[in-house]
């Protein structure tokens, strides 16, 4: 009985410390709401993987790229796929000129956080309906 209780307690603890189920769209929304030109250097490590973080934040073109979310005036749809410790998110919306725009983002777990590992912006020629993602590689150019 003691062993059963200990095993149950261990399972509960493991459940608490394992990476929780995540909504990648929620992490994107957090990034979109929290990061701005004033805090980009401070907050970038909380949203972007070490692969993407620049060596220096002194180049405004680079910091503007970290604020790519400013290109989309309003998101309207999203689809995401998570497989283990990697995932991807497609966000569809309109740009600041009301033209259709899509963000394709790759995510990976780093230090127990889901971080953006790749960003691909697609200027769409016409409005589309986002389909469920079956394979993350389809979102990025080969």
């Amino acid at each position: 009985m003691k062993y059963l209780v200990s095993a149950a307690a261990l399972l509960v603890l493991l459940g608490c410390t394992a990476t929780k189920p995540v909504s990648l769209y929620q992490t994107y929304t957090d990034y979109s709401n929290q990061m701005n030109a004033e805090n980009v250097e401070q907050l970038a490590p909380a949203y972007f993987s070490s692969n993407l973080l620049p060596q220096s934040f002194s180049d405004t073109s680079v910091t503007q790229q970290l604020l790519f979310k400013n290109m989309m005036a309003k998101p309207s749809q999203h689809q995401e796929l998570v497989t283990g410790n990697i995932g991807c998110l497609a966000v569809l919306g309109r740009d600041n000129e009301q033209q259709p725009l899509q963000f394709n983002l790759a995510y990976r777990v780093e230090n127990d956080s889901w971080l953006i590992d790749q960003v691909h912006v697609v200027f769409l020629e016409q409005s589309i309906e986002l389909q469920p993602i079956t394979n993350c590689t389809e979102l990025f150019p080969g």
Binding site: L52, V62, Q65, H120, F123, E125
Partner: peptide, 14 residues
């Protein structure tokens, strides 16, 4: 067309 920058890439068609 796909343009690759330091952090992001961008595609445009037409």
């Amino acid at each position: 067309a796909t343009f690759s920058l330091e952090i992001i890439s961008m595609s445009v068609s037409g």
